[in-house]
């Protein structure tokens, strides 16, 4: 499509959006928030199951979940099924990459220069510790399994560049295992409590490190899975890349 047509189309869309936003008809609109809606208010006040609290304090017990990071609570507890789907999206993408790019010629990996290869293990160790912290504290501080796992994968990419480490089938196994454990946790909830992905481990003290075991377990699984997935998937890009350099 040529540029004039594209600009014309964008102009039409922009005008439509402008007209919708400047419409003066009565009714609710985005960006003009009425009083906070029921759903997110219940998430914040932890009153989804109908129990009312006048206030919530650190160290309180018996709440419906004890995560102080509400986004984490939404991602893993209230809407955990979405997250299972999200994990599956990554899984499908990596499988697709494996199907398209995998199984080609033998690979030769060239080692990197001395600076990278001497620094790589230390940086990788640092990244590993940071990312473990990130996904263990997902329910207390921002972060969680996805960024944590992605950080491990980044560390791993560094290792690939620094050493002659070859990404192996171990990652596929780990990924498979982590995905199965996610489903298994969901099924245990189904068997014990009657609903798929229901929290069956109980809730502990709000604000403590192992207070919300369910979320910690799920985030650890996600962290491992994302790390394994990204390492194996991106490995298949990198491997070929290095090989071509060698030729």
């Amino acid at each position: 499509m040529n540029k004039i047509a594209a600009i014309l189309m964008i102009g039409i869309i922009s005008y439509g959006v402008y007209a919708a936003f400047s419409s003066t008809q009565p009714g609710s609109k985005p960006f003009k928030r009425k009083a906070q809606n029921d759903v997110s208010r219940a998430y914040l006040a932890k009153t989804v199951n109908g129990k009312k609290h006048s206030s919530i304090m650190r160290g309180m017990k018996g709440l419906e979940n004890s995560s102080s990071n509400i986004v984490t609570a939404v991602v893993l507890d209230y809407r955990g099924f979405d997250t299972l789907g999200e994990v599956t999206v990554l899984f499908a993408a990596i499988a697709g990459i494996g199907l398209l790019l995998g199984g080609q010629k033998k690979r030769v990996i060239t080692p990197a220069g001395p600076i990278i290869s001497s620094l790589a293990p230390w940086i990788a160790l640092f990244i590993l510790i940071t990312s473990a912290y990130v996904f263990l504290h997902g329910h207390l501080t921002p972060g969680g399994g996805f960024p944590g796992g992605a950080m491990i994968a980044a560390g791993f990419l560094l290792m690939v560049l620094g050493f002659r480490t070859k990404p192996s089938g171990v990652f596929r196994m780990l990924e498979s295992f982590a995905g199965l454990s996610f489903v298994l946790v969901g099924l245990l909830g189904f068997l014990k409590k009657g609903s798929f992905l229901q929290n069956f481990m109980g809730t502990g003290e709000m604000g403590s490190l192992f207070g919300s075991l369910f979320i910690t377990v799920l985030y650890a699984i996600i962290g491992i899975k994302v790390a394994a997935e990204l390492s194996s998937g991106f490995g298949s890009f990198v491997k070929e890349d290095l090989e071509e350099e060698h030729e």
């Binding site: 919708a20 985005p30 809606n37 759903v39």
Partner: peptide, 23 residues
């Protein structure tokens, strides 16, 4: 952000309370 819900059944009612151009 206009209806405050993602559930299809609830949106069905909420959509009619929305500004009709937005909807």
């Amino acid at each position: 952000s206009s209806t405050g819900t993602l559930n299809m059944a609830q949106i069905s009612g909420g959509l009619r309370e929305m500004n009709s151009a937005m909807a």
